[in-house]
């Protein structure tokens, strides 16, 4: 039901999507999302720190909550940590369901909770200095929708 991975290594988005979608006979919809390090000309690298142990636990709790709310046939979450450069894939989620409404809603829910309830912190190394990415009030507000 749950495939949850926290890793430093890159992942192959196409391969993971195909693997997740394969061999399902009771599924009518798959939704996938991939987060990418957004470059802006000044960003050199992004470092992602996490809390080993709690991260896996928090992701599993978030996935369990999604599975409780919607009729899902599967959930995949991959989230990387370590040093990444613009253009690199940071994370992905995938949801499988009989109908698309549940798959879309669950993927949206997972992303909102991943943003502010999974113990990851981003630090940006920019041409003009280094800084930790601050959490946005809008990320916290997004949880109120659910």
């Amino acid at each position: 039901m749950f495939d949850i991975r926290v890793q430093g290594a890159p992942f192959d988005y196409g391969h993971e999507c195909a693997r997740f979608a394969g061999g399902r006979s009771d599924t009518g919809a798959i939704v996938t999302f991939c987060g990418i390090v957004r470059g802006d000309g000044a960003l050199e690298t992004m470092e992602i720190e996490h809390y080993p142990g709690m991260t896996e636990r928090a992701l599993r709790q978030i996935a369990k909550e999604a599975a409780r709310r919607w009729a899902l046939g599967g959930i995949m979450i991959i989230h990387r940590f370590g040093q990444l450069v613009p253009g690199e894939q940071i994370m992905m989620v995938a949801t499988a369901s009989a109908h698309r409404a549940d798959a879309f809603a669950a993927a949206d829910f997972l992303m909102d909770y991943l943003k502010s309830r999974a113990p990851f912190w981003k630090k940006e190394m920019r041409k003009d200095g280094t800084s930790w990415v601050a959490a946005k009030a809008s990320d916290e507000d997004a949880l109120m929708r659910w």
């Binding site: 943003k115 999974a118 113990p119 990851f120 930790w132």
Partner: peptide
Amino acid sequence: QELRDFDAPLDGAREIAFFPPMTGG
């Protein structure tokens, strides 16, 4: 490894972690 409030009791706790608001995704 469970998010709590600052007024939470420590009884039986083994590991306490402090950190800024999370920025995953």
